[in-house]
Design a protein around this nucleic acid. Structure first.
Lengths: 191, 191
DNA sequence: CATAACATACATACTAGTAGGTACAGCAGA
DNA sequence: TCTGCTGTACCTACTAGTATGTATGTTATG
């Protein structure tokens, strides 16, 4: 792996472990095994490095979600597959994590990839739900846009609860709960 | 307001604005208009101050939730009142915010109030849901424990999305979505 | 009542170490 | 030899805290 690549991967790890304000250029250099000069050669500074790392994390997240959501099965099954894979990993969301960092949110260049990623995910889920409704799998009353936002929020909030509890239990309950609620909107299961 | 009180309130503000690692003792002193010696007289250090601030925020959050959840009305109405008040404030959760801070999560003394607060909230919502089910307001299939976790997660996740978008829109969608899903489990509304 | 003894409250100066960089010199390959 | 890359030195500001001082009470004792 070349120097630039090592810097990006080390930054990804540190942003995940320590957040943006908690990650120093020095720490990145040490983890990557790269001198200060090299780092400032490849990147203009800490925000530039963070942007590269963040874009890669967002890309990863998007590709994985697309894998499950574009797969076969009913709308419910695809969303279930997506949520259960996230539950299986239970590592937390490297993108969502950064939303709590004031320096990231204050910088529009850094915030934009965050916003785009969540917008994409909500729209993608919304399309899956709308398709399911058109096919008659889901109740007509179900609001695809609002429900998609709820699913993404449940996932992100589940990670918040898991960190507070230092345990996976609240996260698993939250996923089970949203799938249970969604199941009540599945036609054929009702009544 | 005396010195100790000003220190706690300034710490609360800064923890909310900048997080734990982003909040320095110096910044706290300056905002409180208090000298360094005074700060270290009243508190042993940064973690001690953060603990006092965090406990107060948790207490606030709990008291407000209890106000809505112990009020009159059906289970659905009380939960709706709670969620809509949070939506009206749309300030974010000062407790949930700290879960993304590694130094807070790593310190059991600081993490404990976070865990207790969310555990309490999940249990409180769970009891409201169980009562609603017993009274025949809600479908028998509804899982109170899982659904309570979903509601708390939706709220916390909604704040995550709102920060990423620098807008209240995703948060409002998420709240509307979870209330819509919950409404499908309200008896009399089905079919 | 006067005053010594002591605790409380607040302030200033100082510390080692880190944050986030700039400036520049050397070196290896095309 | 020029360009890309890397290493070393240096810089200013800040972090979290200690050490040491002083001003103001608050009892205890004669």
């Amino acid at each position: 792996m070349d120097t630039r690549e090592r810097l990006i991967e080390s930054t990804r790890e540190l942003l995940w472990e320590r957040g943006y304000v908690g990650t120093s250029p020095r720490a990145i250099q040490q983890r990557a095994g790269v001198g200060q000069g090299s780092m400032y050669h490849h990147f203009t500074g800490k925000p530039d490095l963070a942007l590269a790392a963040l874009r890669r994390s967002a890309e990863d997240m998007r590709a994985k979600a697309e894998g499950e959501l574009s797969g076969p099965g009913t709308a419910y099954e695809r969303i279930e597959a997506y949520l259960l894979r996230e539950r299986a990993v239970l590592r937390g969301c490297p993108v969502g994590r950064l939303t709590q960092d004031p320096d990231v949110i204050a910088d529009d260049v850094l915030r934009q990839p965050l916003e785009e990623t969540f917008d994409w995910l909500r729209q993608r889920l919304s399309r899956v739900l709308a398709e399911g409704r058109e096919r008659g799998e889901l109740a007509a009353e179900l609001d695809p846009v609002a429900t998609a936002a709820t699913i993404v929020a449940t996932l992100q909030g589940g990670y918040v609860l898991a960190r507070a509890a230092a345990s996976a239990e609240p996260f698993e309950h939250a996923i089970r709960g949203v799938l249970g609620l969604l199941a009540t909107a599945v036609k054929g299961r009702r009544g």
